Amino acid sequence: MELTNNDFLVGDVVVLTNYFTNFSNELLDVKYLYPNGKIRVTDGLWGRTVVPKEIRPASATELNANRRLTEAEQALAEVS
């Protein structure tokens, strides 16, 4: 299932799906939903505009860790 900007609300905490960015381990807040389907996210200091497929909701484990987990860490968290 592909997410759209309708699946996010301003204030949602998300992480980037691409590990090769400046924000790769940051939890980001959704700040603005553009009418063209793009989303403005920020880490509190820096922001960027993304398309919905570039982000996903942060998991509860990531919220507790205050960072995005690697795929291996996420898999371990789902098992425990």
Rank of each mutant, 00 (worst) to 15 (best):
A72E: 11
G44I: 11
R67N: 08
T21E: 15
R68D: 03
A60N: 04
F20L: 13
P52D: 07
E71N: 06
F20H: 15
E62G: 08
L16H: 01
D43S: 04
L69E: 13
E2S: 09
P35R: 01
N36W: 01
R40G: 11
L28E: 10
N66Y: 04
K53Q: 12
S24G: 12
L69T: 09
T42L: 02
E2P: 07
T49S: 04
L63K: 15
W46T: 09
V50P: 08
D43Y: 01
N22Y: 05
T42H: 03
N66S: 06
R48H: 05
F8T: 15
A75R: 15
K53F: 13
T61G: 08
G44K: 15
A65E: 14
R40N: 09
E78C: 02
P57N: 09
P35C: 01
T49V: 12
R40F: 13
A75F: 09
R48M: 13
V50T: 06
K38C: 10
L45A: 11
L27V: 10
I39N: 04
R40L: 14
S59P: 05
N25G: 09
V79I: 14
R56H: 11
N6V: 05
L76Y: 04
S80A: 03
L16G: 04
N22S: 15
L3R: 12
V79Q: 10
S80P: 00
K38D: 13
Y19H: 14
S59V: 01
F20G: 14
N25M: 11
V79L: 13
G37R: 05
W46M: 14
M1E: 12
L45C: 10
